[in-house]
Design a protein around this nucleic acid. Sequence first.
DNA 1: AAAGGTAACAACCGCCATATG
DNA 2: CCATATGGCGGTTGTTACCTT
Length: 268
Amino acid sequence: MVQGDQEIRKGPWTEQEDILLINFVHLFGDRRWDFIAKVSGLNRTGKSCRLRWVNYLHPGLKHGKMTSQEERLVLELHNKWGNRWSRIARKLPGRTDNEIKNYWRTHMRKKAQERKKGVNNSPSNSSSSNSESSSSTVTTGDSFHFSKTGTRSFYDTGGSSDDHAAAAAAAAAAVIAFPGSNLDDNYQGLEGYDEKGFYSMDDIWKDIDLSEEKNMMIKPICPPIPSSSWEDCFWDDSLWKMDEFDESKNMILPQIDENGIGKANLTG
DNA sequence: AAAGGTAACAACCGCCATATG
DNA sequence: CCATATGGCGGTTGTTACCTT
């Protein structure tokens, strides 16, 4: 990857990239993707950054198997709205349109196969045919390919948890020094960076885990007590609560303008 | 134990809508 | 009002893990 006319990176995200992105989203909010893409030094398109954030890194996401209620809801809503994945996703807190889409695809394929079999073997068989009401365990086995300890098995080419701190530090350095420079350069001299400043994937997953366990329901928009976790500070599940009004979502994110001055609000 | 098939899911692509100059 | 940039959405593909034979 040459920096001058560097080609845009594609493919799986590394852990360093993830952390870098998380931190820059923390700093600049989750709207200005092109800007973030440039400023972060990630050789990714803004689009790619957004996708990664929305589908994977977002703190409010649930990572795991769909519950039977969710499955039922998906079926129900899809029946109602068709392939309006994003709309369906809004009704499923913590689930992304991509996830639901994937789920549906798999589900339908399975159903189609079952139906085929049913037709071939016993035409009167209706056990699996009603796709609207079959809320049974559709997702079998597998389902979750990475551990929340930050060591993803899926695709991951990323480094150890030491790299997290380095990447986090790189984010900080990059903010100050406005990069364009090689990421590796940004890591230099920043070893042992205190992870309290930025969060490693470990921490992030831990927090997500906790919040999931504590409440599958909705978090208050403003946490009563300042949390040590950055996403608690600026993230709430309002996004997932949004129904028809998601245009009005105003995430309260710390933001730093081009002069490096923090602002409280974000684009509306 | 190895091979093949399938499931799951991340990520990309193209199109469209909206925002901005 | 028009052109361009950016973001969002749905469809599709590619890769890996798991299961079955």
